[in-house]
Design a protein around this nucleic acid. Structure first.
Lengths: 242, 242
DNA sequence: TAAGATAGGTTGTATATACAACCAAAAAAC
DNA sequence: GTTTTTTGGTTGTATATACAACCTATCTTA
């Protein structure tokens, strides 16, 4: 097999294609080992190796006696997961609400032209909203959105869906970049987040992509006294470059 | 095999023990598949499964035709790696120095008794130092150290070795927990870090363990205007809880 | 002495066979 | 109608065998 792919790779490709084409959606059972033996003309151990590796990669999950299923997709950052803030608030038994402060199309700010690959004068969508828990403001979200990635962004009802959830639907995230900073609060933040005198804000800048397309650049501001980011890690063995 | 471990797990345990006992150090070749057949009385495919899984876990690396070798160890956090600050500063061509402000044994602060598993009146080591780059202060490090994990902590010369490097030697990190916060600077921080008026600090609280022993609780304070934390992530398929 | 061939070792891929453990649907028994 | 048993399917573990591809040391030849 000088230049051809190993047969277990061909089986993996077959499974991936079935998932990508939506033939098998999340939690759907994929063909069993024995079915793959017939479909791909391989041995059971070869089919099994393909399924084992896709499981290891998080594409599938297996249950003894039941089958092999498509795993749901999730953007994973050990320390900074991009979550549905409404769901998160509701999951801890509080009431979520938001206040939309701004939603419009405007010229792309100069400092973001490079990020979006735009020219002076080109337009992006811009939104500012405050997320609230039990009517108490906990986060200011300012977001610039690429019109190419989400042309209908301005037309959504953000009382019933958060920008994050909407964007996940129309331009599913495949990559994200974060930057965390402490910042002095400006007057707008002081009023909007009801900060104490001299209280700073924890700021998360987040750029997200969907495949090769930059989707949005957003900034999240949190009251320093009421917000922290945490995580826990264990030692992992890791290969140096070979 | 009602309650006993699968044989490939026994092979994995055998390999792990050989590494833990320093019989096979980093980059040393471990027994080949055929050697494991004899040593563990298993089939080659069972030995191979054990080696494949340890490779997947980053414990080993394999080279076709040459053998299977012990992979070097590394603590890995995608966003908050615990690095050697002196080395980091020197690697970007600047000069590292530090100023030790406090180094003493004292009663464990009340809020850390639970962390360290200590009683009122028990003692811990306490150090405060400022790390500098080209003589400019960039970080305040306050640290409480468990005397059991590092009994000689107070006796080190921190002009030539950072606390982090020393602790890595005597109590190698196996686990860490982080918390990131924005905070208003107190007068000591303002003076020590030469902050602008009203400039906040970015604070990282970090607890580290070596195996089951809590080693240290440290707090790192950075000028908000000159420090940020960043990272970039890609989509990973991931199982929901089963 | 250097180059090429050979031998023996390694990992990588593939197939076949067998039994264990688990699950769910269908059939049989009550 | 309900419970138990059976059947057919699934994944999990294990062994054996074979050949390919790679690497390194040793031997042979020029």
């Amino acid at each position: 097999m000088s230049q051809e792919e190993p047969r277990y790779q061909l089986v993996k490709d077959f499974i991936r294609k079935g998932i990508a084409s939506k033939e098998w959606k999340e939690h759907k059972r994929v063909p069993s080992e024995n079915e793959l033996v017939d479909m791909c003309k391989v041995s059971r151990m070869t089919a099994r190796r393909a399924l084992d590796e896709l499981t290891e990669e998080g594409v599938l999950y297996r249950v003894q006696g039941r089958g092999t299923f498509v795993a749901p997709k999730k953007l994973h950052s050990p320390l900074l997961e991009i979550r549905n803030i409404a769901e998160e608030i509701e999951n801890r038994g509080a009431e979520y609400s938001n206040e939309l402060i701004l939603l419009q199309k405007e010229s792309c700010p100069t400092h973001l032209l490079n990020h979006f690959g735009l020219q002076e004068g080109d337009q992006v969508f811009h939104s500012i909203m405050v997320h609230k828990e039990d009517k108490k403001p906990i986060q200011i979200e300012q977001r610039y959105v690429n019109p190419i990635a989400a042309p209908e962004y301005l037309k959504q009802d953000y009382k019933s869906i958060t920008p994050n959830v909407y964007l996940s639907k129309v331009a599913p995230l495949t990559e994200a970049e974060h930057q965390i900073q402490a910042k002095e609060a400006d007057p707008f933040m002081k009023v909007t987040l009801k900060l104490q005198e001299l209280e700073p804000v924890l700021c998360i800048d987040r750029i997200t992509w969907s495949e090769q397309t930059l989707v949005s650049f957003c900034q999240l501001y949190h009251p320093a006294s009421r917000f922290s980011i945490s995580g826990r890690f264990k030692t992992e063995h890791q290969l140096t470059e070979l």
